[in-house]
Design a protein around this nucleic acid. Structure first.
Lengths: 224, 224
DNA sequence: CTGGTTGTTTAAGATGTCGTGAAAGCAGTG
DNA sequence: CACTGCTTTCACGACATCTTAAACAACCAG
C-alpha cells in the first residue's frame, strides 16, 4: 500500500484529499505545516507528497526545496491558480506535477497514479545499465541478458548503491552507511568480502563483471 | 553550448522555435519527423528535445516513448490545447514538461532553462568547471571535451587545488598542506613527481595540458 | 661563459591498500 | 539441535601508488 503525505495548513483540505485518495487504496498521512511534514518524511518511508503552495511560515516552495535536499520522493504541488510562473518556479525547486484548485477526485487520482507509475518506471530504468544489466528490487536479483543471479541482502545493497550512480566512486565508508545500520560497528573490510562474493557469484553466472565492477585504488569501488 | 533537438512536421514551427532559442545561446537541430529525430538522437549528443504531439505517421507520444527507451534526455512536449489528459499521458510516457501553443519566447526559454537546470543540477554540484575542463569529485576524474581521465588520490588533490583558483600560483608547500595530512613530513619534491605523472597521464589522454598546467619558476605551479 | 639555483626525469625502495583464503560468528530452517 | 547459507573478521602476500634520492637539464645573474 502506497503512503501519501499531505501537507496543507487547512484542515478542510487535508480531509478532502484523504477522502479522495483512501478509496483508491492509498494510505494518507496528514501534516498541517511544512515543518511537521519534513519531520514525517525523515521518520518514515513516504511514496508521494502532495504539498500546498500557500501556507503561513514556510511556503510550499521552501518545503519542496528542503524535501528535495533530503530524499527523492515525488512531489505534487497544489496551487490556487494555474500561473505559468508558478509552474516554472516549481520545476526549479524540483516539483514533479501540479494540481490546480478546485480539482475533482478523478483528476487527482489520475495524476497521483501517473506520477507513481512514472517514478517506478524510471526506477526500473535506473537499474538498467548499458541496457544489459537489470537489478530487480523485488527479487533481489541481477539479470544480464535474461540470465538471472540471485543476490544476498548485502550484495544487493552494495550493488544497488553502485549501479544507481554509474561511474561514481563510493568509499567503503559510504557503502557501509547505505547498506548497514548507522550505529553498527562493522569492519570496513567487510565490504571487500561482499565485493569479492559478488564478483565470484556473477562471474560464475557468466556476467562480464570485471568490465563493470571496478576497484578504485585508494578510494573504494565503482560501477561502470 | 547546449544542443536542442526540435521535432515537428511543420517547417514554420521549426523555424519559430529556432528563432526563439538561438538568441539565448542554444544550438538548434531540426527534424521534420519522429523517425528523423530518433536517428539524430542516436547519432549525436543532444541536451534537450522539444517534441510536437500532433504529427503524421508517428505521433509525439510514440516518439517520446521510443526516445525514452534509448536515452534519458529531457523532453518538452508541444501541445495545441492544455488538456489535462494530455498531461497525464505525457507523464506516463516520460515527458518532462509541456508548452501549449501559442507560446511566447519568454515562456519557452524559461521552461527550457528550468528543465536543463533541474537535470544538470546534480552534475554541477559535484564538479568544478574551468572552460572545457570538468573535474568530477564523485569519480575523481578530469574531463576535457567529453574525454575522461581517471586520477589517483594525490593527482586529484593537487589538480583540485590548482583548478579551483585558476591563475593563482601555489607553492609546493601549499600543495602539500592541502593534499597531505598536516603532520606528515613528506619530501617537497614529491609534488614534482605527481605533477609529472599528471602531465604524462593527461597528455596521453590527448589533453592540451601544457597550455594549462604551468610551472612558475622559483615559486611553484599554477593552472591557467 | 660559468657557477649556483631550480625544475625535470628516472628508477628503485617504502608504504599502504587490495584480494584471497580460511575460519568463526550468526540466523534461519526443518 | 544439527544443518545451511549469510555475514563478519583477520592475516598474509601481491602489487599500485607514493616517496625519496640522485642524475640530468634548464634557467638566471654576473
Amino acid at each position: 500500500m502506497r503512503k501519501i503525505l499531505l501537507i496543507d495548513d487547512e484542515q478542510r483540505m487535508l480531509n478532502l484529499l484523504e477522502l479522495f485518495l483512501t478509496p483508491h487504496g492509498f494510505a494518507c498521512l496528514k501534516a498541517e505545516s511544512g515543518e511537521k511534514g519534513i519531520e514525517m518524511i525523515q521518520s518514515q518511508q513516504i511514496d508521494l507528497v502532495i504539498l500546498d503552495i500557500m501556507m503561513p511560515f514556510m511556503d510550499g516552495w521552501e518545503v519542496c526545496e528542503m524535501i528535495r535536499q533530503q530524499v527523492n520522493v515525488p512531489i505534487i504541488m497544489l496551487t490556487a491558480r494555474a500561473d505559468k510562473l508558478d509552474v516554472v518556479r516549481g520545476l526549479d525547486v524540483g516539483a514533479d506535477d501540479y494540481v490546480t484548485k478546485p480539482f475533482d477526485e478523478g483528476e487527482l487520482v489520475a495524476r497521483v497514479n501517473a506520477l507513481l507509475r512514472r517514478v517506478h518506471k524510471q526506477e526500473d530504468e535506473n537499474t538498467t545499465v548499458n541496457g544489459e544489466f537489470i537489478l530487480s528490487h523485488d527479487t533481489y536479483s541481477l539479470k544480464y541478458r535474461h540470465v538471472e543471479a540471485y543476490l544476498t541482502l548485502k550484495e544487493y545493497s552494495i550493488i544497488n548503491t553502485l549501479i544507481s550512480n554509474p561511474k561514481r566512486t563510493y568509499t567503503r565508508e559510504q557503502l557501509l552507511r547505505t547498506a548497514w545500520d548507522y550505529n553498527t560497528y562493522t569492519d570496513i573490510r567487510t565490504v571487500d568480502s561482499h565485493i569479492r562474493n559478488l564478483r565470484e557469484k556473477l562471474k560464475a553466472a557468466g556476467f562480464p563483471i570485471e568490465e563493470f565492477l571496478h576497484t578504485v585504488w585508494g578510494i573504494g569501488y565503482k560501477w561502470g
